[in-house]
Design a protein around this nucleic acid. Structure first.
Lengths: 137, 137
DNA sequence: TGGAATTACTTTAGTCCTGAACTAGTTCAG
DNA sequence: CTGAACTAGTTCAGGACTAAAGTAATTCCA
């Protein structure tokens, strides 16, 4: 059984991400969103604090500050002081923010799904499972 | 049969890439390389022209120009006029460039392999196959 | 209790990256 | 054989991004 070529696997993964990114970028831009802003929006429900968002998205905190500022100005998120810890800002999606996020994720799903659709449903499930195994921690 | 959550699959993929990146970045920096420079080095054998490199790595051409300039200054690549088409620059790895690339890819393989190792060899092969299916074209 | 250490987030300042315009060389139609 | 259209690669100005320093609130412990 042949040993797998790890750098090649890596490069393939990287490339796939790049392809989908290139496919979807213009449509996202039409929504008035940067890809990174969409990424943030999509994580706000689960991680409603800037520091957590920076952590989970691998962005530096200053970038999160900047993008949240834009998102807030665009009316996509609301920011309030956390009752439990007055240092923290609790971020929540506004209704329009949620709408835009849904639309954006839909576009992403279309672009990615186009490629994902080349796999059988069983393969898709298996892929998801493998990625979750690898990403854990 | 449950429909798969495409945005979540995407996010997981994105996250995995980010994790490995974060793991390996310091060691690559110790080699005196940027991640993107390593990416270029790894593609030079197969795509020895700047335009192709830009295409295959999804970098803008000016960035390729810049990184190649650095790599050349560091003695990792050599640049010469292509005999067949005098507009083109043919890029080749120098011996030290090849050594650095091998080392860098090894580091990447270690970091990625650490997570990949959580899968069985059969799963790894299957993952590679699925990614290749999706990335085709 | 109070000030040293820690945590959350922002500001600033400077680096890095890239879109747009450009130069060099090639191809090809007339 | 020439000039219009094309392709390869570079330059440069300006904007995007982030490292470092700063501010504000909290926690810890002597």
């Amino acid at each position: 059984m042949s040993k797998i070529d790890v750098p090649k696997l890596w490069a393939t993964k990287y490339r796939l991400l790049g392809q989908v990114f290139a496919d979807v970028h213009p449509a996202i831009a039409d929504l008035g969103l940067e890809m990174k802003e969409l990424l943030l929006l999509s994580e706000v429900d689960e991680h409603p604090y800037p520091a957590e968002l920076a952590d989970v998205t691998f962005m530096p905190k200053p970038s999160v500050t900047l993008y949240l500022k834009n998102l807030e100005a665009a009316g996509h998120v609301k920011r309030e002081i956390d009752k439990a810890d007055l240092r923290r800002h609790r971020i929540t999606l506004t209704p329009t923010g949620r709408k835009v996020m849904t639309k954006g994720l839909g576009l992403l799903a279309d672009a990615f799904g186009k490629r994902l659709g080349r796999l059988t449903p069983a393969q898709q499930a298996s892929l998801m499972h493998m990625l979750e195994t690898m990403v854990a921690d």
